[in-house]
Write a protein that binds this DNA or RNA. Structure first.
Lengths: 199, 199
DNA sequence: GACTGTAACCACACCGGTCGGTATACTGTC
DNA sequence: GACAGTATACCGACCGGTGTGGTTACAGTC
C-alpha cells in the first residue's frame, strides 16, 4: 500500500518540538481542537509558549502538524495490520482494512480524528483540510484499486459503498453509541464483496 | 412515524426568544457551535445579551434548544417526505428515508448538524447529548420496526447496516467531498434489502 | 584551551480582543 | 404589578500571539 500524499517533514523536530506535537496530538484528540488553547498545550509539553510559536509558528500550523502526524500513525497502523493479517488477495485486503477498524477504534474512543477536525475547523479553506479530505480520498482510491485487482465490475460504485460503510462505522461508533459498529461494517463489507458482480 | 422523545416546549417562545433561537440555529449550523459567541447571536437576533440570558439561561441551554429544534425540523421534514413519496410498504418506507437524505443534504451543506454538534460539544455529559444520541437511536429503532413489519430475518443486524449507510453518507458528503453520497447510500440500501433473507 | 557565534529554549511580561455571564436603571405594554 | 425588553457597563478568565533579556550546549576557529 503506497501512501501518496504523505510527505516527510522538512526537518526533524527538536526535543521540545516533539513534546509539543505529542501533547497537542493527545489534547486535540481527547478534548477538541478549539477546546484546547496553546497555553494548555505548552504547559502539558513543559515548554514556554514562545518555544511553541518558535517551533510551529501558529496554532493553525500546529493543528496541521497534528493531523499530518495522525495520518502517518494511521498509515503505519494499517501497514502493520496488513502485515499481521497476511491477506491472500485484494478482497482480503479490503476486508483487512475493515478488520483493522475494530482495533483502531479500541484505542480511539472519540472516533475519527479527521472527521472531528473537519467539523471543528469549520472553514473549508483551513490549511489542514487537504490532509483530512486527502485521507478519505486515499482510502476510497485504495478500495477502487483493490476492487479492480480482484476483477470486480463497477469498481467506483463498489468503492463508494465500501467507503460509506467505513465512515458510517466511524461515526456511529461515537454518535450513536454503537460499540459494535466496526464489526457490523466488516460483515456488511464481506457480504457486499461476496455478492458483487465480476467485470 | 412516531417521534418518541421529542417533547413539546415548556412554554411558547416570546418573539425575541424566537428570533434568538432562529439566529442561533443558523449561526450554530453554518459556523459551528464553539465558533459563534453569544454576542454574535444577540446581534443577529437584534436583542441584548440580557434578553438572551433571560430567555435561555445559558449558552449550553441555547445549544440544547437549537438541537431540539433541529430534531423537530428533521422529523417534520421526514414526515413531509413520506407523505409526498407515498411508500407502499415497510421496505419502501426505509428507502424513502434514504431518498429523503438527498433533499435534506441539498439544504444542509455542512452535513449533519447532530454529528457536528456531538464533535463540538466534546464532553459526553453535555445536556444536549441525549438529543443527539436519541436522534440516531430513533432512526435505528425505526429501521428495526420497518424491517420487522416487512418480515425480514435478523432485523437488528439489518438495521445496524442501514444505519451505517445512512451515517456514512452524511459524513462522506462533507468530509470526503462526496456529493453523490446520498444516492450511493440509497442504492446500497435497496440492494441490501433486496438480498436480505426473510424470517 | 580560549573565544565566538549560533540555535534552542527559558522566564516573564505584555498585547488587543473575545468569551460566557451578571448588574443596574430604565421603558413600554397589559 | 407582572412581564418583557433595552442600554450600558462590568466581571474574571481565556484567546492567539509578541517582545525582551537571559542561559546553555554545541560547533568551529585560532
Amino acid at each position: 500500500m503506497e501512501r501518496t500524499g504523505v510527505e516527510e517533514p522538512a526537518k526533524p523536530l527538536t526535543a521540545a518540538g516533539e513534546r509539543i506535537l505529542t501533547a497537542a496530538s493527545t489534547l486535540f484528540y481527547e478534548q477538541g481542537i478549539r477546546a484546547v488553547g496553546v497555553d494548555a498545550i505548552a504547559m502539558a509539553a513543559e515548554v514556554t509558549k514562545k518555544t511553541l510559536y518558535d517551533r510551529f509558528g501558529s496554532k493553525d500550523r500546529l493543528i496541521a502538524a497534528y493531523l499530518d502526524r495522525r495520518n502517518r500513525v494511521w498509515h503505519a497502523f494499517l501497514d502493520e495490520q496488513l502485515e499481521r493479517r497476511r491477506p491472500g488477495g485484494p478482497e482480503e485486503v479490503i476486508l483487512a482494512v475493515f478488520a483493522a477498524l475494530t482495533d483502531w477504534l479500541a484505542e480511539s474512543r472519540r472516533g475519527c480524528g479527521f472527521i472531528n477536525a473537519s467539523v471543528e475547523l469549520a472553514a473549508p479553506d483551513h490549511p489542514a483540510m487537504p490532509v483530512i479530505v486527502g485521507q478519505k480520498q486515499w482510502l476510497r482510491a485504495e478500495f477502487v484499486a483493490q476492487a479492480r485487482l480482484a476483477g470486480f465490475a463497477e469498481v467506483e460504485e463498489l468503492a463508494d459503498r465500501l467507503l460509506l460503510l467505513h465512515e458510517g462505522a466511524l461515526v456511529s461508533f461515537r454518535v450513536a453509541a454503537m460499540e459494535h459498529a466496526p464489526e457490523v461494517a466488516e460483515r456488511a463489507a464481506a457480504d457486499l464483496l461476496a455478492g458483487w458482480p465480476r467485470g
